[in-house]
Design a protein around this nucleic acid. Structure first.
Lengths: 163, 163
DNA sequence: TATTGTTATACTCTATAACTATA
DNA sequence: TATAGTTATAGAGTATAACAATA
Protein backbone atom coordinates (compact mmCIF):
# COMPACT_ATOMS: atom_id res chain seq x y z
CA UNK A 1 0.00 0.00 0.00
CA UNK A 2 1.20 3.43 -0.99
CA UNK A 3 2.08 5.70 1.86
CA UNK A 4 -0.42 8.37 2.62
CA UNK A 5 2.23 11.09 2.48
CA UNK A 6 3.95 9.66 -0.60
CA UNK A 7 3.74 12.99 -2.44
CA UNK A 8 5.59 14.71 0.39
CA UNK A 9 8.10 11.90 0.81
CA UNK A 10 9.48 12.71 -2.64
CA UNK A 11 10.71 16.04 -1.27
CA UNK A 12 14.13 16.31 0.34
CA UNK A 13 12.86 19.21 2.43
CA UNK A 14 10.12 17.06 3.93
CA UNK A 15 12.60 14.31 4.73
CA UNK A 16 14.90 16.79 6.44
CA UNK A 17 12.06 18.22 8.50
CA UNK A 18 10.79 14.78 9.55
CA UNK A 19 14.29 13.59 10.43
CA UNK A 20 14.95 16.74 12.44
CA UNK A 21 11.67 16.45 14.32
CA UNK A 22 12.40 12.81 15.14
CA UNK A 23 15.81 13.83 16.49
CA UNK A 24 14.98 16.86 18.57
CA UNK A 25 13.23 15.06 21.39
CA UNK A 26 15.86 12.41 21.88
CA UNK A 27 18.77 14.80 21.70
CA UNK A 28 17.11 17.17 24.14
CA UNK A 29 16.46 14.33 26.56
CA UNK A 30 20.01 13.01 26.26
CA UNK A 31 21.65 16.41 26.66
CA UNK A 32 19.29 17.23 29.49
CA UNK A 33 21.03 14.61 31.59
CA UNK A 34 24.08 16.87 31.41
CA UNK A 35 22.07 20.05 31.96
CA UNK A 36 22.67 21.01 28.35
CA UNK A 37 20.50 21.89 25.36
CA UNK A 38 21.36 21.63 21.69
CA UNK A 39 22.37 25.26 21.54
CA UNK A 40 24.41 25.27 24.74
CA UNK A 41 26.19 22.07 23.73
CA UNK A 42 27.05 23.48 20.32
CA UNK A 43 28.33 26.71 21.83
CA UNK A 44 30.47 24.81 24.32
CA UNK A 45 31.91 22.66 21.54
CA UNK A 46 32.88 25.58 19.31
CA UNK A 47 34.35 27.58 22.19
CA UNK A 48 36.40 24.59 23.33
CA UNK A 49 37.83 24.18 19.84
CA UNK A 50 38.37 27.91 19.29
CA UNK A 51 39.70 29.36 22.51
CA UNK A 52 39.24 33.12 22.69
CA UNK A 53 36.53 33.27 20.00
CA UNK A 54 34.38 36.42 20.05
CA UNK A 55 30.61 36.25 20.58
CA UNK A 56 29.86 37.67 17.16
CA UNK A 57 32.10 35.09 15.50
CA UNK A 58 30.54 32.31 17.53
CA UNK A 59 27.11 33.44 16.43
CA UNK A 60 28.23 33.37 12.82
CA UNK A 61 29.74 29.88 13.12
CA UNK A 62 26.57 28.51 14.70
CA UNK A 63 24.31 30.46 12.35
CA UNK A 64 22.29 32.00 15.16
CA UNK A 65 21.45 35.65 15.75
CA UNK A 66 23.60 37.60 18.18
CA UNK A 67 20.75 38.47 20.52
CA UNK A 68 19.83 34.82 20.89
CA UNK A 69 23.39 33.88 21.75
CA UNK A 70 23.39 36.11 24.81
CA UNK A 71 21.03 34.02 26.89
CA UNK A 72 22.73 30.84 25.71
CA UNK A 73 26.09 32.07 26.97
CA UNK A 74 24.53 33.44 30.15
CA UNK A 75 23.26 29.96 30.87
CA UNK A 76 26.58 28.28 30.16
CA UNK A 77 28.50 30.88 32.12
CA UNK A 78 26.13 30.59 35.09
CA UNK A 79 26.95 26.88 35.17
CA UNK A 80 30.63 27.77 35.35
CA UNK A 81 31.54 26.19 32.04
CA UNK A 82 32.84 29.23 30.16
CA UNK A 83 34.56 32.50 30.98
CA UNK A 84 33.87 35.83 29.29
CA UNK A 85 36.96 38.05 29.30
CA UNK A 86 37.09 41.56 27.88
CA UNK A 87 39.56 41.94 25.04
CA UNK A 88 42.50 44.19 25.94
CA UNK A 89 42.76 45.82 22.53
CA UNK A 90 39.05 46.26 21.78
CA UNK A 91 37.11 46.61 24.99
CA UNK A 92 33.76 46.02 23.27
CA UNK A 93 34.43 42.35 22.60
CA UNK A 94 34.32 39.34 24.88
CA UNK A 95 36.84 36.54 24.46
CA UNK A 96 35.26 33.20 25.27
CA UNK A 97 37.05 30.23 26.80
CA UNK A 98 35.89 26.99 28.42
CA UNK A 99 36.72 26.24 32.03
CA UNK A 100 38.03 22.89 33.24
CA UNK A 101 34.53 22.04 34.40
CA UNK A 102 33.18 23.05 31.01
CA UNK A 103 35.62 20.84 29.18
CA UNK A 104 34.77 17.91 31.44
CA UNK A 105 31.05 18.41 30.84
CA UNK A 106 31.57 18.76 27.10
CA UNK A 107 33.55 15.53 26.99
CA UNK A 108 30.95 13.58 28.95
CA UNK A 109 28.01 14.89 26.97
CA UNK A 110 29.92 14.64 23.70
CA UNK A 111 30.67 10.97 24.24
CA UNK A 112 27.03 10.21 24.96
CA UNK A 113 25.86 12.29 22.02
CA UNK A 114 28.25 10.65 19.57
CA UNK A 115 26.99 7.25 20.68
CA UNK A 116 23.44 8.42 20.16
CA UNK A 117 24.29 9.96 16.82
CA UNK A 118 25.94 6.77 15.60
CA UNK A 119 22.68 4.97 16.33
CA UNK A 120 20.89 7.28 13.93
CA UNK A 121 22.71 5.72 11.01
CA UNK A 122 22.29 2.16 12.15
CA UNK A 123 21.92 -0.09 9.13
CA UNK A 124 24.07 2.20 7.03
CA UNK A 125 27.69 1.64 6.05
CA UNK A 126 30.43 4.06 7.05
CA UNK A 127 30.49 5.26 3.47
CA UNK A 128 26.75 5.85 3.45
CA UNK A 129 27.02 7.80 6.67
CA UNK A 130 29.80 9.95 5.27
CA UNK A 131 27.82 10.50 2.08
CA UNK A 132 24.78 11.50 4.12
CA UNK A 133 26.72 14.12 6.05
CA UNK A 134 28.18 15.50 2.82
CA UNK A 135 24.76 15.53 1.17
CA UNK A 136 23.23 17.39 4.10
CA UNK A 137 26.02 19.93 3.84
CA UNK A 138 25.23 20.43 0.19
CA UNK A 139 21.51 20.78 0.88
CA UNK A 140 22.29 23.38 3.54
CA UNK A 141 24.48 25.34 1.14
CA UNK A 142 21.99 25.08 -1.72
CA UNK A 143 19.12 26.00 0.57
CA UNK A 144 20.74 29.27 1.52
CA UNK A 145 20.83 30.32 -2.14
CA UNK A 146 17.87 28.50 -3.65
CA UNK A 147 15.61 31.53 -3.69
CA UNK A 148 18.23 33.93 -5.02
CA UNK A 149 18.33 32.00 -8.24
CA UNK A 150 14.74 31.96 -9.31
CA UNK A 151 16.00 32.18 -12.89
CA UNK A 152 18.05 29.05 -12.53
CA UNK A 153 17.43 26.52 -15.27
CA UNK A 154 19.96 23.86 -16.20
CA UNK A 155 21.68 21.12 -14.20
CA UNK A 156 24.35 23.43 -12.89
CA UNK A 157 26.98 21.47 -11.03
CA UNK A 158 28.42 24.07 -8.72
CA UNK A 159 31.09 22.69 -6.45
CA UNK A 160 31.01 23.41 -2.76
CA UNK A 161 33.52 22.42 -0.18
CA UNK A 162 32.64 19.16 1.48
CA UNK A 163 36.00 18.43 3.05
CA UNK B 1 42.02 25.44 7.62
CA UNK B 2 39.87 23.26 9.77
CA UNK B 3 36.32 24.42 10.22
CA UNK B 4 35.52 25.94 13.55
CA UNK B 5 32.54 23.64 14.07
CA UNK B 6 34.35 20.55 12.77
CA UNK B 7 33.51 18.56 15.90
CA UNK B 8 29.80 19.23 15.35
CA UNK B 9 29.98 18.61 11.63
CA UNK B 10 30.83 14.96 12.33
CA UNK B 11 27.33 14.53 13.76
CA UNK B 12 24.43 13.59 11.52
CA UNK B 13 22.08 15.34 13.91
CA UNK B 14 23.92 18.62 13.52
CA UNK B 15 23.85 18.31 9.74
CA UNK B 16 20.12 17.65 9.79
CA UNK B 17 19.51 20.64 12.02
CA UNK B 18 21.64 22.96 9.88
CA UNK B 19 20.03 21.74 6.67
CA UNK B 20 16.57 22.18 8.12
CA UNK B 21 17.32 25.69 9.35
CA UNK B 22 18.69 26.63 5.95
CA UNK B 23 15.50 25.36 4.32
CA UNK B 24 12.84 26.79 6.54
CA UNK B 25 13.16 30.40 5.44
CA UNK B 26 13.15 29.71 1.74
CA UNK B 27 10.27 27.26 1.88
CA UNK B 28 8.23 29.64 4.02
CA UNK B 29 8.88 32.48 1.58
CA UNK B 30 8.00 30.35 -1.43
CA UNK B 31 4.84 28.90 0.08
CA UNK B 32 3.88 32.33 1.35
CA UNK B 33 3.32 33.40 -2.24
CA UNK B 34 0.48 30.91 -2.27
CA UNK B 35 -0.77 31.88 1.19
CA UNK B 36 0.50 28.57 2.51
CA UNK B 37 2.88 27.44 5.24
CA UNK B 38 4.77 24.17 5.54
CA UNK B 39 2.09 22.66 7.73
CA UNK B 40 -0.87 23.85 5.68
CA UNK B 41 0.76 22.66 2.47
CA UNK B 42 1.49 19.24 3.95
CA UNK B 43 -2.05 18.92 5.25
CA UNK B 44 -3.48 19.89 1.88
CA UNK B 45 -1.27 17.36 0.13
CA UNK B 46 -2.24 14.46 2.37
CA UNK B 47 -5.94 15.30 2.28
CA UNK B 48 -5.86 15.54 -1.51
CA UNK B 49 -4.29 12.11 -1.74
CA UNK B 50 -6.52 10.57 0.92
CA UNK B 51 -10.02 11.87 0.39
CA UNK B 52 -12.17 11.48 3.48
CA UNK B 53 -9.27 11.08 5.90
CA UNK B 54 -10.08 11.76 9.55
CA UNK B 55 -8.32 14.52 11.49
CA UNK B 56 -6.77 12.11 13.94
CA UNK B 57 -5.37 10.00 11.10
CA UNK B 58 -4.07 13.10 9.35
CA UNK B 59 -2.31 14.14 12.53
CA UNK B 60 -0.70 10.72 12.77
CA UNK B 61 0.46 10.76 9.14
CA UNK B 62 2.01 14.20 9.55
CA UNK B 63 3.41 13.40 13.00
CA UNK B 64 1.85 16.46 14.59
CA UNK B 65 -0.26 16.63 17.70
CA UNK B 66 -4.02 16.73 17.27
CA UNK B 67 -4.44 20.09 19.00
CA UNK B 68 -1.95 21.70 16.64
CA UNK B 69 -3.79 20.37 13.63
CA UNK B 70 -6.96 22.22 14.52
CA UNK B 71 -5.70 25.71 13.73
CA UNK B 72 -3.94 24.42 10.63
CA UNK B 73 -7.20 23.04 9.27
CA UNK B 74 -9.13 26.13 10.39
CA UNK B 75 -6.77 28.20 8.29
CA UNK B 76 -7.05 25.96 5.24
CA UNK B 77 -10.81 25.71 5.59
CA UNK B 78 -11.18 29.48 5.99
CA UNK B 79 -9.39 29.85 2.66
CA UNK B 80 -11.96 27.52 1.12
CA UNK B 81 -9.48 24.78 0.25
CA UNK B 82 -10.90 21.91 2.30
CA UNK B 83 -14.27 20.78 3.58
CA UNK B 84 -14.95 19.20 6.97
CA UNK B 85 -17.91 16.84 6.82
CA UNK B 86 -19.28 14.95 9.81
CA UNK B 87 -19.14 11.20 9.40
CA UNK B 88 -22.59 9.60 9.15
CA UNK B 89 -21.72 6.53 11.20
CA UNK B 90 -19.63 8.18 13.91
CA UNK B 91 -20.70 11.75 14.40
CA UNK B 92 -17.58 12.62 16.37
CA UNK B 93 -15.28 12.42 13.38
CA UNK B 94 -14.70 14.85 10.55
CA UNK B 95 -14.07 13.57 7.04
CA UNK B 96 -11.68 15.86 5.19
CA UNK B 97 -11.70 16.55 1.47
CA UNK B 98 -10.09 19.19 -0.73
CA UNK B 99 -12.21 21.57 -2.76
CA UNK B 100 -11.57 22.39 -6.39
CA UNK B 101 -9.91 25.62 -5.29
CA UNK B 102 -7.79 23.67 -2.83
CA UNK B 103 -6.64 21.26 -5.46
CA UNK B 104 -5.75 24.11 -7.80
CA UNK B 105 -3.76 25.85 -5.05
CA UNK B 106 -2.02 22.64 -4.09
CA UNK B 107 -1.02 22.01 -7.69
CA UNK B 108 0.37 25.52 -8.17
CA UNK B 109 2.28 25.54 -4.90
CA UNK B 110 3.40 21.95 -5.35
CA UNK B 111 4.92 22.69 -8.73
CA UNK B 112 6.84 25.64 -7.34
CA UNK B 113 7.93 23.69 -4.30
CA UNK B 114 9.15 20.71 -6.30
CA UNK B 115 11.23 23.04 -8.45
CA UNK B 116 12.67 24.60 -5.31
CA UNK B 117 13.26 21.21 -3.74
CA UNK B 118 15.09 19.94 -6.81
CA UNK B 119 17.45 22.89 -6.45
CA UNK B 120 18.39 21.66 -2.98
CA UNK B 121 20.13 18.67 -4.47
CA UNK B 122 21.86 20.57 -7.23
CA UNK B 123 25.23 19.00 -7.91
CA UNK B 124 23.96 15.58 -6.91
CA UNK B 125 22.99 12.73 -9.22
CA UNK B 126 19.49 11.31 -9.26
CA UNK B 127 20.86 8.26 -7.45
CA UNK B 128 22.45 10.45 -4.78
CA UNK B 129 19.20 12.30 -4.29
CA UNK B 130 17.26 9.07 -3.94
CA UNK B 131 19.87 7.75 -1.51
CA UNK B 132 19.62 10.94 0.53
CA UNK B 133 15.86 10.66 0.84
CA UNK B 134 16.18 7.01 1.88
CA UNK B 135 18.92 7.85 4.38
CA UNK B 136 16.80 10.61 5.92
CA UNK B 137 13.97 8.16 6.25
CA UNK B 138 16.24 5.77 8.07
CA UNK B 139 17.53 8.50 10.35
CA UNK B 140 13.96 9.47 11.17
CA UNK B 141 13.04 5.89 11.97
CA UNK B 142 16.18 5.31 14.03
CA UNK B 143 15.76 8.61 15.83
CA UNK B 144 12.34 7.64 17.09
CA UNK B 145 13.81 4.57 18.80
CA UNK B 146 17.37 5.63 19.58
CA UNK B 147 16.69 6.35 23.23
CA UNK B 148 14.64 3.22 23.86
CA UNK B 149 17.68 1.11 23.15
CA UNK B 150 20.23 2.51 25.52
CA UNK B 151 21.62 -1.02 25.85
CA UNK B 152 22.23 -1.34 22.15
CA UNK B 153 25.72 -2.51 21.30
CA UNK B 154 26.58 -4.17 17.99
CA UNK B 155 26.17 -3.08 14.37
CA UNK B 156 22.60 -4.25 14.18
CA UNK B 157 21.34 -4.03 10.62
CA UNK B 158 17.63 -3.71 11.12
CA UNK B 159 15.75 -3.30 7.87
CA UNK B 160 13.21 -0.56 7.52
CA UNK B 161 10.91 0.06 4.62
CA UNK B 162 12.34 2.59 2.19
CA UNK B 163 9.99 1.90 -0.69
C1' DT C 1 29.58 56.80 12.00
C1' DA C 2 30.18 51.77 12.76
C1' DT C 3 30.51 47.70 15.72
C1' DT C 4 29.93 44.60 20.07
C1' DG C 5 27.09 42.99 23.13
C1' DT C 6 22.62 43.70 25.09
C1' DT C 7 17.45 44.30 26.04
C1' DA C 8 12.93 43.87 24.73
C1' DT C 9 9.73 41.86 21.90
C1' DA C 10 7.18 39.05 18.72
C1' DC C 11 6.26 35.19 15.93
C1' DT C 12 6.35 30.26 14.77
C1' DC C 13 6.41 25.56 16.03
C1' DT C 14 5.60 22.23 19.33
C1' DA C 15 3.78 19.73 23.60
C1' DT C 16 0.35 18.81 27.36
C1' DA C 17 -3.82 19.09 30.23
C1' DA C 18 -8.48 19.46 30.28
C1' DC C 19 -12.91 20.28 28.22
C1' DT C 20 -17.36 18.83 24.87
C1' DA C 21 -19.84 15.75 22.38
C1' DT C 22 -20.40 11.61 21.02
C1' DA C 23 -19.76 6.56 21.32
C1' DT D 1 -15.48 4.52 30.26
C1' DA D 2 -13.13 5.73 25.85
C1' DT D 3 -12.48 8.49 21.65
C1' DA D 4 -12.61 12.78 18.22
C1' DG D 5 -12.06 17.19 18.09
C1' DT D 6 -11.28 21.35 20.63
C1' DT D 7 -9.49 25.10 23.87
C1' DA D 8 -6.05 27.12 26.49
C1' DT D 9 -1.47 27.46 27.58
C1' DA D 10 3.43 27.04 27.98
C1' DG D 11 7.83 26.14 26.26
C1' DA D 12 11.44 26.19 22.92
C1' DG D 13 13.67 28.35 18.84
C1' DT D 14 14.14 32.21 16.01
C1' DA D 15 13.96 37.07 14.05
C1' DT D 16 14.19 42.29 14.30
C1' DA D 17 14.57 47.01 16.29
C1' DA D 18 16.81 49.83 19.34
C1' DC D 19 20.01 50.86 23.09
C1' DA D 20 24.83 51.69 25.71
C1' DA D 21 29.63 51.31 25.42
C1' DT D 22 33.41 51.53 22.64
C1' DA D 23 35.92 52.10 18.42
Amino acid sequence: MKERDAELRALVGYGVKRANSALVGGVAQLLGRFDLRRTTFSALSVIANNAGIRQSDLAEVLAIERPNLVQILDEVQRAGWIARARDGADRRVYRLTVTAAGLARLTEAGDALRTYDARLTRGMSAQERTALIAALRRVEENGLHALDEEAWEGPDVGEISTT
